[in-house]
């Protein structure tokens, strides 16, 4: 089953131009499933970078605009999109010129995977 899921994620990765990595992690940034392009920067996949999202989404949910769902960070060379699917976090890393809307449209396609993965997560 894991292989099937990986294959599916790889397919999705190849669907979007300049999308470098799709990473499904738990809230501590430990990867559960990933599809990575060789051009993906190693730093963007480190747990201490990924785990900041879990806190940021918690805190930004207090701003009185409802629960935070997605945080998009644009850098000069890369963009990082993280989605709140707690206990899972959905991470996308892409180049700065990648179509952000295109990445966001992958969400409903990845959604069916998450149900099965949530069971595998260790709650800390």
């Amino acid at each position: 089953m894991a292989e099937e899921m990986k294959k599916y994620l790889k397919q999705l990765l190849s669907k979007v131009d300049n999308l470098l990595c799709i990473l499904i992690t738990d809230r501590d940034g430990v990867p559960i499933l990933k599809a990575v392009n060789e051009k993906c920067p190693e730093l963007a996949m480190r747990p201490n970078f990924l785990t900041t999202f879990a806190m940021a989404t918690d805190q930004s949910s207090k701003l009185g605009q409802g629960r935070n769902k997605t945080i998009i960070c644009m850098y000069s060379s890369y963009q990082v999109i993280q989605m709140n699917k707690l206990p899972l976090i959905l991470n996308f890393v892409a180049t700065a010129d990648c179509n952000t809307g295109h990445i966001l449209s992958l969400e409903p396609l990845i959604e069916p995977l998450l149900g099965g993965l949530k069971g595998a997560v260790i709650e800390s």
Partner: peptide, 17 residues
Amino acid sequence: RTKQYQQRLMQGSGQRW
């Protein structure tokens, strides 16, 4: 934890997608 996740995924434990 990474190892544990890999194992659980391999087992599948009846989860369907």
